[in-house]
Amino acid sequence: MDNIRRVASEAIQKIKNSDDKVLESIKFEYLGKNGILTKILKSLSHYSIEDRKKIGFEANKIKTILASEIKKKERCIKRDLLAKKIRREKLNCSSIFCFPFSKGSFHPIVQTIQDMILAFKLLGFSLADGPEIETDWYNFEALNIPENHPAKDMQDTFYLDGTKSLLRTHTSPGQIRVMEKQKPPIKVVVPGRVYRNETSDASHSSTFHQIEGLEVDKNVTFLGLKMILTKFIHNFFCCKLDIRFRPSHFQFTEPSAEVDIQCLFCKGKGCKICKNSGWIEMLGCGMVHPNVLRSVNYDSEVYTGYAFGIGVERITMLKYKIDDIRLFYENDLRFLRQF
């Protein structure tokens, strides 16, 4: 018995002091086929039944202990080795070594439209859509722009061969289409592409984008329009900018207004971008003209409405200080990747 115990403590000592190579031989020495403990167990037949029980029990116990000690030591050694390995593994953290996934980009115009729509959604507007090829009725007549009206000249229109169709010069036909389709209350924005027959330069483009807004209901007022647009501008530009409403003239609204915002660059002090006025023209708006309501058979005595139209390119140019509208349609990656 004592012998067994001595063997055990000796073995445990050995395990403690071992390394990965020695451990294997210790395992073999004690627990192998001809190992010390195996031998002891095999030699039990030489003892009395009582001793056999005692010694057998003790030897088995020790065998289990040793086995688990060895396993523990094994794990310990493995962890040490791994730690050593980890200590050696030091990679370059420069991004130049990284896998060169390239980043995509969204077009700034599309992005601005999305941002603006979200801002209007928060103000309770829903979305509508309209065709780019329009008729004279939707683009002009229904909007109180009769034949021969100078306002028709101002928006130089592209006409299509062989049809009476034209390319819409503004998103305002969207107003008519929405009102034809549904009854008040209406509160929508209509974003889209519009076309003007103009020579392109740094601030003009034959193709550009607008967002039209329209609310028609029983108690829609000019004050309501001011509030909505003020909120929109504050939401969109994320700050408390000064806003100015200035009388203007559009055929399809009365009263009409132009909205200026405090110049974003000089904060109203006057700079090159705002031509020293401290203000930047932002959008046109007004109360829907009774003739427009009449053209969709709304009773202008019962319903009133407001409408507004915002040029997306203009806003985007302001937002990113882009000085040439043609950059949007050139699609040079050196430009696009900045967004």
Partner: peptide, 11 residues
Amino acid sequence: LGFSEVLNYSF
């Protein structure tokens, strides 16, 4: 996937 969005004239 690294694509860039573009917009072209309709003409």
